[in-house]
Write a protein that binds this DNA or RNA. Structure first.
Lengths: 348, 348
DNA sequence: TCCGGGATAGAAAGCGCTTTCTGTCGGCGA
DNA sequence: TCGCCGACAGAAAGCGCTTTCTATCCCGGA
């Protein structure tokens, strides 16, 4: 049926062991023999059976990358960078590369667990979890437990943009400084003179959402400015669009709106325009993440830049073991404010 | 070390065979026995070894989804939909789901082949290739040959947005009617009165690019309007931005620009604005794909809608075997024109 | 000339599961 | 009452590879 290693061995007139050694290259084989084997491989069009190989060697070439939503550029960029880093990062078993696979959890903890189990089944070499976790302690625990077990079994675990599990020594974590990001944005608006700032936040139960909000509130409190209205919704434009009505209902005199991220900001802008309001003339709008389209938005979005690409790359390297994590496993990732055209001093 | 099926069997006081049967559920097992086994699984926290299972059963739960670039929403949306369809689509072996893995080829045929080999190694259950192929016959042949071999070995192959391989009976293909899309867009602009239309096209060597361009030219020819300047570049905003200077250099009197896709259109708009030109007052701009941000662009983009989500879902179903492909394996996907604010009659 | 040892290659024992082939047992028709 | 059959469970033979343990060969040094 399909060509097996034994067939290659027969054709090259060597033992299966030798073929395996040629393929894996971690044992001396005479040049002539190697040549013969490689020719046989070529002639028979042999493809190694990865499942058998993984089984026998008790390791695999699979690296899982779990994201909330691939279609969201935030994850797309990080995942893509990680996959690239993993592809580059030296050869896996059998002279091949690692297979970096990205899986969509849809932000659902159940799916996340399902995928983790699947990856665990495949004895994945590493797993990268991208994106904020849930605040819900039940799910947190379940996930943490599973990750701990996987780490124990030799799977490298990397968190990217998600807070580290307290007390877990096995996992490396890249943590975005969302709190500072939120603070910077608020300080920027306060500095421009805004005093009534609405906040179209992300889902209430995610760590990312809370951290950004925390920083925002911290800045307001420090300036002695009362907190404006806040809404919660998914990280999409519809959510931003819907937020506007709600925010204005709760404070008709808003002069600025901070959005959960750039995509939400786009929705906010659209809704403001529909109300006949200009940006930033009537209302200033700020986003988060500095996604690629933000610079082309009209007006170009003031936002908080997150080094998405770089973080994805580092996550990939950590997963490959190419880069060693710091002692405490946590790699802080700074956020920087990017001021563009969507924010300006309030009119009056 | 790790818990194996034999451990579970011992604990449940049954044979390994029985445990396997309980787990796979394709053989009668007495309720009481099943119960006992499941309890043992639970108690020991047993996780099936997917590699062993795949090896023994000669199939796997892996479904590969190859895309040019996850970070591009075009692919993100399709991949995400496909992954969802695959997740839903009934249980894989061992009561689990299929593991849909998406891989970034970066549009490089070498990486595409590498990933295909990796997937072939893993004895993937199916492979979905998303995005236009290369025009280059050498690479086409290499890929086609590999796909044929995989299909022969039982892997289901689905092409999505890529023309079918002529004479290949094994693969199903969802083909976007890019030609009609290009034609519709051109006819729309011609109908508005435009006679000098520039085209910021995608990479010259991709089928998608050529098909869109073909349709565009066909419409111009039918109307007896001479073809305007054309540039080629990647599907990103920078490419669109750069195209503008080039297009105007070749025809300073352009009244409309068609972009390779919406992302490119964004770059075109930005460059036009930098030149002090208004859209659509001075120049009309049209995109392609109807990506989510197009409706929020300012002005909202006239574009060609591609049912990305639906196509991804269908591709997923075809890969799962949930949906049967038509006899000739080709599923045509229609494009529809979406007229928004970025196109208007030319000034004079 | 003889021997120790480095360099290769082979034999064979698994890796952890699936599945075919055999039972075993209780019940039912004759 | 006997025999047959269906329902269930176990034995054991792999699936295709890796890797340890051995064997062989040929070299240089004594």
């Amino acid at each position: 049926m399909t060509v097996t290693l034994a067939d290659v061995a027969a054709r090259a007139r060597v033992s299966p062991a030798t073929v395996s050694r040629v393929l894996n290259g971690n044992y001396p084989v005479a040049a002539a023999t190697r040549e013969r084997v490689l020719r046989a491989v070529e002639e028979l069009d042999y493809v190694l059976n990865g499942t058998a190989s993984s089984l026998a060697a008790a390791t695999s070439d699979l690296v899982g990358v779990l994201v909330h939503d691939i279609a969201d550029p935030f994850f797309g960029i990080m995942a893509s960078a990680a996959q690239h880093a993993i592809g580059e990062g030296g050869s896996g078993r059998a002279g091949g590369e690692k297979l970096a696979v990205v899986c969509n959890t849809g932000g659902s903890p159940e799916r996340e667990l399902t995928y983790l189990t699947l990856l665990q089944r495949q004895r994945a070499a590493a797993v990268i979890l991208m994106g904020g976790g849930l605040e819900d302690p039940v799910h947190l625990d379940a996930t943490a437990a599973k990750l701990a077990r996987m780490a124990e079994a030799g799977t490298r675990v990397v968190l990217c943009g998600r807070p580290p599990v307290p007390g877990d020594a096995h996992t490396a974590a890249l943590v975005f400084d969302n709190r500072t990001g939120g603070r910077l944005l608020a300080e920027h608006l306060l500095g421009l003179g805004h005093r009534r700032i609405g906040y179209a936040a992300g889902p209430a139960d995610r760590t990312t959402t809370r951290h950004r909000l925390d920083g925002h509130r911290q800045a307001l409190a420090a300036a002695g400015v009362p907190e404006g209205p806040t809404t919660h919704g998914p990280y999409d434009r519809v959510s931003g669009h819907a937020a506007v009505a709600e925010l204005f209902a709760r404070d008709p005199d808003l002069t600025a709106i901070v959005a959960a991220n750039d995509t939400v900001a786009l929705g906010v802008c659209a809704a403001l325009r529909e109300r006949g309001l200009t940006i930033p003339g009537d209302v200033s709008v700020a986003g988060f993440d500095d996604l690629p389209f933000s610079v082309d938005a009209v007006p170009a979005l003031t936002t908080v830049h997150l080094p998405l690409h770089g973080s994805g790359t580092r996550a990939g390297r950590l997963a490959m073991g190419t880069e060693e994590p710091p002692a405490d496993g946590t790699v802080p990732v700074p956020c920087t404010l990017v001021v563009r055209d969507s924010t300006a001093p309030p009119r009056a």
